[in-house]
Design a binder for these strands. Structure first.
Lengths: 179, 179
DNA sequence: TTATTCGGTTAACACTGTTAACCATTTTAT
DNA sequence: ATAAAATGGTTAACAGTGTTAACCGAATAA
């Protein structure tokens, strides 16, 4: 019963193989049978672990979300100052999206975008404890708009990734945190 | 062979029915046979008009793109001042995304995001003819990030549409156009 | 008039998601 | 220890999918 450390459970194998399938074929051509094949199990076997193909995809989304949360936890551990933590969280989100291109579409397309949203909300409260909550929330939305938009532009390849552009994004985020 | 004004060609019918299919079933469950059925033609008939299912979807994307271009043309015709035109173009883009939810995902998901991009580029040149091109381009990216990000937040329902929030977005866009 | 293209049809192929029936093994209960 | 049940796999089948081939009639061009 206990998961041996070396080998992943079939459920985990399906999620990992499903991510690869998502990378290689996109969500419009996601084949559960192909995923099963690549795990060397029969086409019906996945149904012992997931109710449906959609349920597997949902599990993949959750897995991705947890990965992003892990990363953002690390950022929070390193940066104590709430403002720099906020900026670095956004940058980490952007880098995460670039490193995992299929993730962003997935995160954005179905209300799975919470990890960054929650952190921005909390950090904004720490940054501006006395600010009018409406104003504070609005600023949070602008910050997230910048992060989401930049991630989109960078991941789509329309905007080329560079240290310079990351610096520019940082500047714009910081500007929202001033005054 | 001349298209009669009243009835649409089969090709157009397929595009319109395809948009409905996209709305009802999403891109992951887009059925070309269902689209054909809803046009009262056989399952093979679409292949007389499109090379493949993907080609139809591509044509749908192009149609959506042209709709957005029409809207942005109207905005350009009304607002002569390049700065206000730029801001209103972004707002029009955001409204367009909200009014046509499936459009945004489509526009964003595959490099079809050009309509706004091109206009922002040109308008930025009009707004800041003497600015360093790199600086100018960077500002354009920030403006688009704000527009794309806001469209995403509004369309996903995470941020509720209101005149107030539109005003806030405008303010933030204008701020990028100052100094 | 003849040939050709245009736009439709039906039939078929390989593939997909999903379920049912079955089976061996492992876990749990009595 | 033995019986029961749950676990996790199998194969076979069904309906639905994208796609192609073969065919066909009408409009068009030679």
């Amino acid at each position: 019963m206990d998961e041996e450390l070396g080998s992943a459970s079939v459920r985990e194998q399906l999620i990992v193989a499903g991510i690869a399938e998502l990378e290689n074929h996109g969500i419009a051509d996601f084949s559960l049978r192909r995923v099963a094949s690549s795990c060397n199990i029969s086409c019906a076997a996945p149904y012992k672990h997931f109710k449906s193909k959609e349920a597997l995809i949902e599990a993949i989304f959750d897995y991705i979300k947890s990965q992003l949360n892990l990363l953002l936890d690390q950022v929070a551990a390193v940066h104590q100052n709430p403002k720099t933590c906020l900026v670095e969280s956004c940058i980490a989100y952007i880098r995460f999206c670039i490193a995992n291109p299929h993730f962003r579409a997935v995160l954005m397309l179905s209300g799975k975008n919470l990890p960054l949203a929650q952190r921005v909300k909390k950090l904004m409260e720490l940054c501006f404890p006395n600010m009018d909550p409406v104003e504070r929330a609005d600023r949070g939305y602008v910050i997230r708009s910048i992060a989401y938009g930049a991630a989109l532009l960078l991941e789509s390849g329309e905007l080329e990734y560079s240290d310079h552009i990351i610096e520019r994004i940082k500047e714009n985020l910081i500007r929202e945190l001033e005054e």
